[in-house]
């Protein structure tokens, strides 16, 4: 929680909401598996991941989606202000062992709807220079 809470009247299309870099290692994926209940072995077992044709263990798409939205909630000053949030999963995030993968997220205001009191934030989410989430958009209610 940093900075002032953005006011709808002061928001313009193109406004930058900031960036964040998220580190992902295997332990992080195991933690997400446990917390979410998604125990698909492709997210923690290299042997199974390779068997089904993946380059290695990959992050849950829902981990990436869940991790990057923190940038928007913190910007809005209230994660509960995110009223709609969608994405397409474009490319998997391969998580090495040993080591980590990194997810980079940046966001900008894509549209402002004064009537409904919301703004759409468009997120660019990459890992290793490739886009991993596509059409990643959050609608945020602001006062």
């Amino acid at each position: 929680m940093t900075g002032a809470v953005p006011r709808l009247a002061e928001i313009a299309v193109g406004d930058d909401i900031g960036t964040r870099r998220i580190e992902v290692d295997r332990a992080r994926l195991v933690r997400y598996a446990g917390a979410s209940g998604d125990f698909n072995p492709i997210h923690w077992n290299e042997r199974v991941a390779v068997q089904v044709g993946l380059p290695g263990v990959i992050a849950h798409g829902m981990f990436t989606m869940g991790a990057v939205i923190g940038l928007v909630g913190d910007w809005a000053g209230d994660p509960g202000a995110v009223v709609d949030y969608q994405t397409r999963f474009a490319r998997p995030v391969v998580v090495p062992d040993p080591g980590s993968a990194f997810i980079e997220v940046s966001g900008a205001v894509g549209s402002v709807d004064a009537e409904s009191g919301t703004v759409r934030v468009d997120l660019v989410v990459t890992s290793g220079g490739s886009r991993v989430l596509a059409k990643c958009q959050a609608v945020v209610r602001l006062l």
């Binding site: 992080r28 981990f63 923190g70």
Partner: peptide, 14 residues
């Protein structure tokens, strides 16, 4: 708390 921790959500409202 567990889920917020897993996705790295550290906002106090959680």
């Amino acid at each position: 708390d567990e889920f917020a921790d897993a996705v790295g959500a550290d906002h106090p409202l959680h």
